[in-house]
Design a protein around this nucleic acid. Structure first.
Length: 533
RNA sequence: GUCUUUGUAACUCAGUAGGAUAGAGUAAUCGCCUCCUAAGCGGUAAGUCGGCAGUUCGAAUCUGCCCAAGGACACCA
């Protein structure tokens, strides 16, 4: 519809000898201002040296289209379009035909896109903060895939660095305790309860005969499995699990280092090897190899991203916590030095989740083991509410998560409002219990609230595209809330199931179409709506 | 100090690349079930869009400066 109207406006402008590329057409917040509205006359006022209202009049005089019911010029020079409602009725049939495909577009055009998210170090249990990144990444993956991208979901396992040595050490000490020693954890150890569980498992299986290799391998696998289990409980799945250790084994890290050195991007200083990241906008050069000859994390990270580029992705997204902000410039610099375009990599930073209990902050620390785990959260709040809660907020705001509030399960969480609309729809459809068929002409739907609902359903494909372009799943959750709201209004105003069969059939189609849109939207966030409440 | 995110109703947040009288939910208050689920609908009240300047027909949105909060500024990840 928008494209059609733009064409109509353009034709009208041609008669005024004006050519304008980017005509802005929007859906006014207030339906008193039409179905669609354009500010074109105001934009041309300066250029044509005429008052916007005069220009608007000239444009309107040249418009003659069957699509349009009525045109109005209002305010400082807005042209408001009232469109014939036929397209809304046609769209009901479109939705019924396309079903779970309604809303799909092909803006991705099969481009390969890689989304790396969560990637938590396997040194402990996932906590609430990881949940935010997990929900964001998985929802975004759903959305991008829905609009035609070829999406790969990837988790990078940091199983090669310092933290793993500390993990191994921690498990070993806990294990030794079980074997009778009085050793105590040192300050760089992990104090989480799950470390004790690992040690217990090892002890049960191997008694006091476990070698270091056994302990290390068992520990990593145990913790990774736990992470996978928690993620699957949150409905988060990955296509690729990359391992840092394997990258070393395949020689990718070494190759990367050689390339950086040979290209002259490094220099020795203070017994360490530095990378000239300032060449690409970083505020200081970064150490690649420390004076004790071990790597910093930057080197394998550059190697890892180079590997992703080599695997042929057109676009890449990393989802990282706010504490990684400083990392972006040096990583992108490294990528450029490896001969790749760093602009193909988008790094989405998610602001911190602050945990509160009764308005008091709980300080999180994996080291000391004081966390609220993702698993506990899911047990208390449920998957659907948790996913909605996280997905509903833009990434840029820091998020206060009050455990007390979340567990209340009250209607503070708007997911219940949406699920209620869905449950009402399901109830109607159960009761109707007859075939749903395409209707050529909708004759009896003519109320304001039905039009509003239909117009909202019509927006869905555009909303999905917008949310994909902006990498913003919360646009979907806001949208589906509005759909639910308009449905509740409709539901209160009009009865669907009546003795008038023709009327009932038309309304049933509208209700069914609403249901399809709600389910499609929720499925992009991986939320299952209840059929009964 | 430098970089960065945020600041919108009492609270939690939207605000669709600059639009019309700034919107929802929660909390407050007043109505609405003989009827498909009242976890709903409608009404009222609640705002210096952190502050000041600028850009223009028009600013919560863009620019500059200031204030406040979070995060980052390691040979940690």
């Amino acid at each position: 519809m928008i494209e059609n109207l733009k064409k109509i406006i353009n034709e009208s402008l041609l008669k005024l000898d004006v050519v304008k590329e980017n005509i802005v057409l929007e859906i006014p917040k207030d339906s008193k201002n039409g179905d669609y509205s354009t500010n074109i006359a105001m934009q041309l006022a300066h250029e044509l040296n005429k008052s916007p209202v005069v220009i608007a009049k000239e444009i309107v005089e040249n418009i003659n289209s069957l699509l349009i019911e009525k045109l109005e010029i209002k305010g400082p020079g807005f042209i408001n379009f009232y469109v014939k409602k036929d397209y809304l009725f046609d769209n009901i049939n479109t939705i019924l035909q396309e079903q779970q495909n309604y809303g799909k577009t092909n803006i991705g055009n099969h481009q390969k896109i890689n989304i790396e998210f969560v990637s938590a170090n396997p040194t402990g249990t996932l906590h609430v903060g990881h949940g935010r990144g997990a929900v964001y990444g998985s929802s975004l993956a759903n959305i991008l895939s829905f609009v035609g991208y070829d999406v790969t979901r990837e988790y990078y396992i940091n199983d090669g660095g310092n933290q793993i040595s500390n993990l191994n050490k921690s498990i070993k000490i806990r294990y030794n305790n079980l074997c009778g020693s009085n050793e105590e954890l040192t300050s760089n150890c992990y104090h989480g309860k799950e470390i004790i569980d690992v040690a217990k498992n090892i002890y049960e299986k191997y008694k006091d005969k476990a070698t270091d290799e056994v302990i290390n391998e068992y520990g990593l696998n145990y913790l990774l499995d736990a992470i996978k289990k928690d993620l699957s409980k949150l409905r988060v799945y990955f296509d690729v699990w990359s391992s840092e250790k394997k990258m070393y084994e395949k020689g990718l890290v070494e190759k990367t280092l050689n390339k950086l050195v040979n290209s002259g991007y490094t220099y020795d200083s203070e017994n360490a090897l530095f990378l000239k990241t300032t060449l690409y906008g970083d505020d200081k050069d970064r150490v690649l190899i420390k004076s004790d000859k071990s790597n910093t994390y930057l080197l394998p990270d550059i190697a890892y991203h180079f590997d992703k580029y080599s695997r042929g992705f057109d676009l890449m997204i990393d989802v990282l916590g706010a504490d990684h902000y400083g990392y972006i410039n040096r990583l992108k610099a490294g990528i450029e030095m490896m001969g790749k375009k760093s602009s193909n990599l988008t790094i989405k930073i998610l602001q911190m989740v602050r945990l509160l209990k009764d308005k008091e902050e709980i300080k999180l620390s994996k080291r000391t083991g004081k966390t609220v785990t993702l698993n506990e959260l899911l047990d208390e709040v449920g998957v659907d509410a948790t996913r909605y809660f996280f997905a509903n907020k833009s990434l840029d705001t820091q998020l206060d998560f009050d455990i007390g509030l979340a567990t209340k399960k009250s209607n503070e969480n708007p997911i219940y409002y949406i699920e209620y609309a869905h449950a009402r729809i399901c109830s109607i459809l159960r009761e109707y219990n007859d075939k749903i068929e395409i209707i050529e002409n909708y004759n009896t739907i003519n109320t304001e609230c039905a039009y509003n609902l239909l117009a909202k359903l019509y927006e869905f494909p555009n909303i999905v595209s917008l949310s994909a372009k902006k990498y913003a799943p919360h646009i979907i959750t806001n949208y589906v809330y509005e759909v639910a709201n308009l449905f509740h209004v409709f539901y209160n105003f009009e009865k669907v199931l009546t003795n008038d069969i023709g009327k009932t059939k038309e309304r049933i189609n509208l209700v069914k179409a609403t249901n399809i849109v709600i389910e499609n939207a929720l499925s992009l966030i991986s939320i299952d709506a209840l059929e009964r409440m």
